[in-house]
Amino acid sequence: MASQGTKRSYEQMETDGERQNATEIRASVGKMIDGIGRFYIQMCTELKLSDYEGRLIQNSLTIERMVLSAFDERRNKYLEEHPSAGKDPKKTGGPIYKRVDRKWMRELVLYDKEEIRRIWRQANNGDDATAGLTHMMIWHSNLNDTTYQRTRALVRTGMDPRMCSLMQGSTLPRRSGAAGAAVKGVGTMVMELIRMIKRGINDRNFWRGENGRKTRSAYERMCNILKGKFQTAAQRAMMDQVRESRNPGNAEIEDLIFLARSALILRGSVAHKSCLPACVYGPAVASGYDFEKEGYSLVGIDPFKLLQNSQVYSLIRPNENPAHKSQLVWMACNSAAFEDLRVLSFIRGTKVSPRGKLSTRGVQIASNENMDAMESSTLELRSRYWAIRTRSGGNTNQQRASAGQISVQPAFSVQRNLPFDKPTIMAAFTGNTEGRTSDMRAEIIRMMEGAKPEEMSFQGRGVFELSDERAANPIVPSFDMSNEGSYFFGDNAEEYDN
């Protein structure tokens, strides 16, 4: 993207840094990872977990959730003011799984939030270390993106479920800051804005008074975040219109849905970061690795190297396929839920299948599930090659597409044709070009129609051997075009429920 120079890199967003050079960025990201790792080690000690239990991804998720809940100030305040039966607002906890007599047992633990905050700050040299908290939120978000298709949420806001490739980060909490905003897809931002506008339509006082002023500035800020994701002048001009509207209503909703559809071809720039579970960072720190000293990046080879040398386990339900569970977590670790499966298959070195073909449910185990038949197995999170994460949407291309997802959002900077089903997408653009945004709409449609099938995206960008740390010898991959490109292809993934 041309304006790259004016933006802070995501590592800076990730670490609240002012302008830093590459070495400083690597050190501050490393410091953040160190903090998460030290916190995780301490929690495993508190909970008396064995090494194996500490490497269980379900335990990692519970521990991450506990610290996120302990620092969720708004919710904590709300819980104190609106006490609900049987919930102690000062405590947080969740299921911890232990191996007892050759069987997995679930144990519900409860801790004072104050105590968890103390352990977290102690692991982070006394700081609140917001960057580390956001990092864990993005890992949870990436896992949700890989596990669930947001059909219901899309339909509720009037969008087409086939636009799911635009929904990265749709389950990120509001408090995820600049680093969170960077990884949100165009569809996620559109959905947040539509929800806001709908509230304004239904509630006369939404934009009024002292609160209304705050609401208005939040609305304009979200519009600017979305505008910054678009790469064409016409899309940005249309966002200006939406932002400046005196009284946002149905016309703005129409414009936003139009823009979301246009992003299936004229893709937005959305950041991709490899955020790993805390149970990967903990053992690495415990083994003596100093992330701050060595430096770390979320968008280069580092996460690949770390996963190459990590042992992570997962509980497996009786009829689940461990290899499929591994694929789910591998995609989440690489922030690749909406990437082209052919690119992923090449990088991973084994075939990556669409969601609907995987015999696996989510990673988390519900409290009512029976533990008797639970097994555990090693997650295979290694890769054959590594590639640089991208934040450009890439230019655009036609490809055989599917009944489910009709476009992709690249996660890796790797040369390819970008699949999208042009006739299906263009069919949504018939007729409606009147109104105050008509010239911009016409211009956007013209650009979409001009998108050429034979153009290559990320020209000359390749993948790298894991021994090639400096990215000196790019390998331009070859793809098996007979395979499906979309992950949520004609899909039956479970729906995400809060």
Results as ranks from 00 to 15, higher is better:
S3G: 00
L256C: 12
D16I: 05
T151A: 07
F464C: 02
V285Y: 11
G187F: 04
A123L: 10
Q20C: 02
T390W: 02
C279P: 05
M43V: 08
S335M: 02
N125F: 13
I36N: 00
R175Y: 05
N144M: 14
N492S: 14
P354S: 06
S457K: 00
S262A: 15
V183A: 12
R216Q: 04
V329G: 06
N250T: 07
I445H: 04
R150F: 03
L154H: 00
R162H: 06
G187M: 07
D439N: 12
K184V: 08
S467R: 12
G35M: 07
R400S: 07
N309F: 01
R175D: 09
A284P: 13
D497N: 13
T390E: 03
V109R: 06
V476F: 00
I36W: 07
T390F: 05
R8S: 00
K357D: 08
A260V: 15
A332G: 12
I265V: 15
R199K: 11
K422Y: 09
S170V: 06
F39T: 08
A234S: 14
K357T: 06
K31I: 10
N321E: 02
M66F: 14
L172Q: 14
E455C: 13
L344Q: 10
F71S: 10
I33R: 00
K305T: 06
S217D: 00
K103P: 02
N224C: 06
T23M: 03
Y52W: 08
D302M: 00
Q149N: 04
R26D: 03
V270A: 13
M371V: 15
N498H: 10
Y385L: 05
I265C: 13
I41R: 06
S353M: 14
V270K: 05
A271E: 09
T45D: 04
T151H: 07
G393T: 03
T232R: 15
A218M: 05
G404K: 09
Q168H: 05
R389K: 15
L298I: 07
S326A: 05
R162W: 10
K273H: 01
D128P: 12
R175N: 09
L358A: 05
L61D: 15
D439Q: 11
L79T: 04
R416D: 01
R8E: 01
D16A: 09
V463I: 15
T378F: 04
H82D: 00
N483G: 02
A428Q: 10
Y385P: 15
S482I: 05
L172T: 04
L193Q: 15
K98Y: 03
R152Y: 09
S353P: 15
G431W: 04
G132R: 03
V463P: 00
A260S: 14
G300D: 06
G177L: 08
F458V: 01
P161K: 09
L110I: 13
N432I: 06
E53K: 00
R174Y: 02
P277W: 04
V242N: 02
S345I: 11
R382C: 13
T151K: 14
R389T: 05
L166C: 01
Y385W: 09
S335Q: 12
F346T: 09
G431S: 10
L358V: 13
M13Y: 01
I116L: 06
K422P: 00
D468S: 07
F258W: 04
P83S: 10
M191P: 03
N250Q: 10
M196H: 05
I33L: 15
P474T: 14
R102S: 13
V109W: 02
R384M: 05
D51I: 12
Y487P: 03
I425Q: 02
A493Q: 07
D203I: 03
I116P: 03
E244H: 01
A451N: 14
L466Q: 13
S383Q: 15
W207M: 03
T437N: 08
V463E: 14
R117S: 13
G404C: 11
K229N: 14
N498C: 02
G268W: 03
M196T: 12
H82M: 14
Q311Y: 02
F258I: 01
E11W: 13
G94D: 13
S402F: 01
D160K: 02
A493K: 14
R382K: 12
S367V: 06
F346D: 05
R208L: 06
T6R: 00
I57V: 15
E73Y: 00
P283Y: 04
S69L: 07
G288S: 09
L259E: 12
N334D: 06
M196V: 13
R75A: 08
A70C: 08
Y219R: 04
S84C: 14
G349P: 12
K7R: 00
K90D: 02
D240P: 00
R208P: 02
M43R: 09
G35S: 15
L307Y: 01
R267Q: 10
Q398C: 07
P354Q: 04
P89V: 15
N492E: 03
F488A: 01
G35R: 07
F458M: 02
V343N: 01
E369R: 04
M481P: 00
Y385K: 02
S141M: 06
R216D: 05
G404L: 02
R55W: 05
K305G: 11
R317A: 06
G349D: 05
Q168T: 10
A27Q: 14
W120G: 08
R195C: 11
R243N: 03
T6P: 01
Q4L: 15
L259A: 15
P322Q: 11
P161V: 07
G362N: 09
E375W: 12
L307I: 09
L379N: 10
A337I: 03
F346C: 12
L166K: 04
S274V: 03
A218H: 05
V414G: 02
V408A: 15
A178H: 09
S287H: 08
R162F: 12
I63N: 01
Y97N: 10
A284V: 07
N247Q: 06
S326D: 10
S217K: 04
G490F: 05
D34M: 15
A153C: 08
L68F: 11
E244R: 05
D290C: 10
A178T: 12
G450E: 00
R441C: 04
L143K: 08
M13G: 06
M137D: 07
R156C: 07
K7L: 00
I63H: 05
P248F: 01
T130R: 12
G435D: 11
G249K: 07
D101Y: 00
N483P: 02
Y487M: 06
S69Q: 04
R361D: 03
R317V: 08
T134G: 04
E484G: 03
S50Y: 03
C275T: 14
E252C: 10
P410V: 04
T92C: 05
Q399A: 11
L266F: 04
S3K: 00
I301P: 10
R389F: 02
D127M: 11
A451C: 02
G490A: 01
F464H: 15
G187Y: 12
G295I: 11
H82W: 14
T360L: 08
F346G: 11
G460M: 12
A366G: 08
M136C: 14
K227V: 10
T6H: 07
A85D: 00
S413I: 05
M159H: 05
L358K: 04
Q405R: 01
D101P: 14
D491R: 06
E495C: 03
I96T: 13
T350K: 08
S467E: 10
W330R: 04
S407L: 09
G300Q: 08
G86S: 13
S402W: 00
F489G: 00
N59Q: 03
T147K: 06
S50P: 14
P419I: 10
K305A: 07
G158T: 10
N21D: 03
R55Q: 12
A411N: 02
M426S: 10
R26N: 00
D101C: 06
V299H: 01
R400C: 09
F338W: 10
Y78G: 06
N319I: 06
S392D: 01
K87W: 01
H272W: 02
R243K: 15
D145C: 10
R213C: 03
T171L: 09
L264N: 06
W139Y: 13
V329K: 01
Q405P: 05
R243L: 03
I201L: 15
W386R: 06
H135K: 11
M371T: 07
D439G: 01
S274Y: 05
V285D: 02
A153D: 05
T6G: 00
S335G: 11
M222N: 15
M105C: 15
K229M: 07
S482M: 05
E494P: 11
M167Y: 06
N370P: 13
S438D: 04
Y111K: 01
E24H: 11
K184F: 07
T396H: 14
L344C: 06
Q364Y: 10
L172R: 04
A403V: 06
F412Y: 13
M481G: 12
R400Q: 04
